[in-house]
């Protein structure tokens, strides 16, 4: 199966993470598993690199984090989206929709560009 380019994954990381967190609070490993599952394995990160992105989002005030202990006794850091993060997600959705529609239009008019 063809993998998606690193550049495209890098650009889409923030809206993807915010979208996953908008459904429910989660931790790094679970977020990655969710994305793998939804993309049928086409999106594959160096898994550890999700954490600097999560920390950056936390620093910018889009998400909050807290350590919790799971049933098995393992400590996990859970991330939650907040109102600022929800607003960011709305603006990201608008941006991505614009790009998506533009590409669709271009390809419909000039299919040979595909």
């Amino acid at each position: 199966m063809k993998k998606i380019s690193k550049e495209l994954i890098g650009t889409s990381t923030i809206p993807i993470i915010l979208s996953v967190l908008s459904k429910k609070e989660s931790y790094g490993y679970e977020i990655i598993q969710r994305i793998k599952e939804l993309s049928n394995g086409q999106i594959e990160w160096g898994e550890g690199t999700i954490y600097p992105v999560l920390h950056k989002l936390e620093k910018k005030g889009y998400i909050t984090s807290s350590w919790k202990t799971s049933g098995s006794g393992r400590k996990r850091k859970y991330y939650n989206i907040n109102i600022k993060g929800e607003q960011k997600l709305v603006s990201e959705k608008e941006n991505w929709t614009v790009i998506h529609q533009l590409i669709l239009k271009l390809w419909n008019i000039e299919p040979n560009l595909i």
């Binding site: 160096g46 898994e47 550890g48 690199t49 954490y51 600097p52 920390h55 950056k56 620093k59």
Partner: peptide, 17 residues
């Protein structure tokens, strides 16, 4: 291996730390 090499991890974390 899936988590990423030490070099990759330290490089990525240095951006936020």
């Amino acid at each position: 291996k899936r988590l990423g090499s030490i070099n990759l991890l330290t490089h990525e974390f240095s951006k936020v730390n």
